[in-house]
Design a protein around this nucleic acid. Structure first.
Lengths: 339, 339
DNA sequence: TTGTAGGCGTTATCAG
DNA sequence: CTGATAACGCCTACAA
């Protein structure tokens, strides 16, 4: 293959200057239809592709965007990331861009920094945010274009989120409506913005139903299996009807715990998750949860980023739309009569 | 920030030529320790970072490697990919390289092709292989350096695999030893090389134990939930002691199916998986399975790739080492006496 | 409409 | 040990 053909080769082969060839390719500048076609067909025939590095150097653009991937094991919602990326890929493809991946583990930003400082990408998509996110403050300080997926309390960064507030509120509301009056809420890391949002949603749904959530049943900071154990026991002791878990992982662990303790779902207690993903696919019984459109999230993030790169001032937003699937895990048993 | 400082700026600031600066940075060529230190400290102080594009253009290297991510939903083992990437990242980091991601959906290689043809990466790591893999033949034809993770029947490509044969054989052996004599094997896509390997391992373990597997209990091509249903029924009808599932996903579906049918694990039938991943974490009971070191796989793949890029002739290999965790899902119940 | 020349930021060559 | 100077492959005034 003519893998290393340059614009010069084409020029001399066609007896024109490389400027002409360049114009024929980029479409910029006036050029006769005839020569353009001549160049085009030559390129087609010899399967020429411009070197992105040379092009990048000349235009000081990389035609890459960087997507971060949280590096901690077991903490991350993989399916989420995956669909997100797929959404991003759709858009980058359309724009002739490619994706760089940076694994960001905790507070270790070295990978991201290298990419930014070596100018290997034109912008960044952060796939997770925390309340005091070091990646966010780094990029902000650098003035590097980025959009953050997830909630943020910082008003002047561009971020894009799913409608977690409504989704979780709606879920809670429907559980209350279905007759489960004593709901427990179990959540993880309190430094994640999302945790605060879901807590608020849980409370709001109660108020809307004219109820008050029991503070003893709102258990946050549940980060390891001991804590899970404790939380589950408390829910049972306090006779909760149903546990609303903030994440799919949490729901998974709780499920395992319950099964180990011989607690039946939903007969003894119900379980619902604020976030549905394929992680729960193999769970039994099926878990009631809220589903969001994660592809759309990635795609939208990429679109926003491209507009930023293009110099436009853009604002973050919340992507509407979610689906609640009520499953067996929250089917009210005949608990009163049955026992 | 002096984000756009060039080597020229440094040169004139220090009153030397850019050649000298370049040498001080790269370490190539003779240069006095004194000037080297002068340059080094200036760079340090002003936080200068060379432009990778300019460097790339000059050396015709990109300092990127591309990792492919299968694009199909629900078919892919995410945790695997994730750990793999983490392993790759470790090595790339060390080499001053970065990772480009290409989502390859089925036979759609356009993303990968763009990266290769526009010379955006120096090599590729394929994270999955199939018997007639289009990505493989494409890269081979292009003569582009790549290593494939997973099994392959093509002898002249560099590929790197886990010791699936031994792992699965060992698992099967231990199940047979534990007293389960009638084992069933359920597997998915027969076009995946790995499927053939696991089948062979299953058979070999039987022979080693002086047994013959029942051909009716070796059910391949189980790709959708109907097939799962059928397969499970057959296992029950034919009174299998235990089902050996080729993948974690398959194990998950089978678990769900059993639970729906009211079949108890391990009382009615046991379940084991040839591949352990966090997908099964939330499963209950815990599933016996084989665990591989996926980080090591990614890291090793990257190392091999770098050696190829460096011009070395390398050969593929099989990464040794795995762990079998026997869990509740295969605990022989007192089936004879009990019923 | 087309071509010439210079620049993007680095490395490599070859003299001093 | 150091410094001009020419690549690397493409883009873009400016000129013709």
């Amino acid at each position: 293959m003519a893998s290393n053909m340059t614009i010069d080769d084409i020029a001399s082969a066609l007896g024109v200057s490389k400027t002409t060839v360049s114009r024929a390719i980029s479409g910029k500048g006036r050029i006769s239809e005839k020569t353009r076609e001549r160049v085009r067909s030559y390129i087609e025939k010899h399967n020429y592709r411009p070197s992105s590095m040379a092009r990048g150097l000349a235009q000081s653009r990389t035609f890459n965007i960087c997507v971060t991937l949280p590096g901690e094991y077991g903490v991350v919602d993989l399916p989420f990331f995956r669909k997100c990326i797929a959404g991003v890929a759709q858009v980058t493809e359309r724009e002739g861009y490619d994706i760089m991946l940076s694994v960001v583990s905790g507070s270790d930003l070295t990978g991201l920094q290298r990419i930014v400082e070596h100018r290997k990408a034109d912008g960044v998509i952060l796939t997770r945010t925390m309340t005091r996110d070091r990646a966010v403050s780094y990029l902000k300080k650098k003035g590097f274009p980025f959009v953050a997926i997830g909630a943020s309390d910082d008003p002047d960064i561009v971020c894009l989120d799913q409608d977690n507030l409504r989704g979780c509120r709606d879920l809670t509301g429907r559980l209350l409506q279905s007759g489960m009056k004593r709901l427990a809420l179990i959540g993880g890391d309190e430094t994640h913005v999302i945790t605060g949002i879901r807590k608020r949603a849980f409370e709001e749904a109660h108020r809307e139903a004219g109820l008050e959530p029991d503070p003893d049943l709102m258990i946050l900071g549940v980060l390891d299996s001991e804590k899970v154990d404790l939380a589950v026991r408390r829910c049972l002791d306090l006779k909760a009807d149903c546990i609303v878990c903030m994440s799919d992982r949490l729901a998974g662990s709780i499920l395992v715990r319950c099964s180990a303790l011989g607690i039946r779902i939903p007969e003894d207690i119900g379980i619902a998750s604020c976030y549905g993903s394929s992680l729960l696919e193999s769970a039994s019984p099926r878990i009631t949860s809220v589903y969001f459109n994660e592809d759309a999230l990635g795609a939208e993030a990429a679109s926003l980023l491209f507009r930023m790169i293009g110099g436009e001032k853009v604002k973050g937003k919340i992507l509407e739309g979610y689906t609640i699937r009520m499953e067996k895990s929250t089917q009210m048993p005949d608990r009163d009569g049955g026992l």
